[in-house]
Design a protein around this nucleic acid. Sequence first.
DNA 1: AACACATTCAACCGCAGTCCC
DNA 2: CGGGACTGCGGTTGAATGTGT
Length: 237
Amino acid sequence: MVKPASFDINGMKKGAWNEEEDNKLRAFIGRFGETNWRQLPEFAGLKRCGKSCRLRWMNYLKPGVRRGNFTQDEKDHIVKLHKILGNKWSAIAEQFPGRTDNDIKNYWNAHIEKRKGRRNGTCAHVTREIKTHNLAQEELSSDSNSSTITNCLNQNTTAFSGVGFSQPTENIGVFESSADSYFNHGSFIEQDYFDGMEEENVMFLPSDYSDVGVASWDLSATFEQDFNKIFGDYYGK
DNA sequence: AACACATTCAACCGCAGTCCC
DNA sequence: CGGGACTGCGGTTGAATGTGT
């Protein structure tokens, strides 16, 4: 899963690091510390550019770097921090001792961002349409351009009246992901409130939903309270 | 078993910010 | 203040690996 080794026009090696290079880098930094990345490879006997050395050290060799799967707590925290900080990976990584910005960025791109790719135009299973407190059970399967969804959205969702949502209340539907555990509706209250646009579980579609665009987070405590007030029984919250 | 497609993640690249002369 | 050197960040790439058919 690494790029094969090659050499650039300056004779600098690129691609995957081998054990000997790792050992040289470890030994040098162990003795002299993280200093002067540009000159480091020369003194450490490495045919690498300084940037490559720094990256290898920071993301892989540095003591304390944790690798492997993220815990559920970490995943939740990443989602929340990303809502606040956006793509400030280094700032997010500061909240996860041992995790690197690269790791978090990779996680986000692989596990979160890809879901947005299933947005408008892709198939969404509309498993429940919420119109009132008595959640109407409808098993619909459609994409967001279909007349089925049009009909669904045109019905009033009176349960949401006066609960402070920023979006037009008549255009609220609850959508359930067909597969992914992370975005399953059992935990989406904390994780998946998208303001204005859509996600797989909850879609807040503007009146003209043909123009659904990029989703953005707005994790709102108010939303959680409101949601619990209305749907607490149903979701066991 | 063989192939195609999807996912993962280490590493690279370009650029912006900071520092120093 | 201006400019070059250096560092760090975020976006992207692409081979290895995993999964599905």
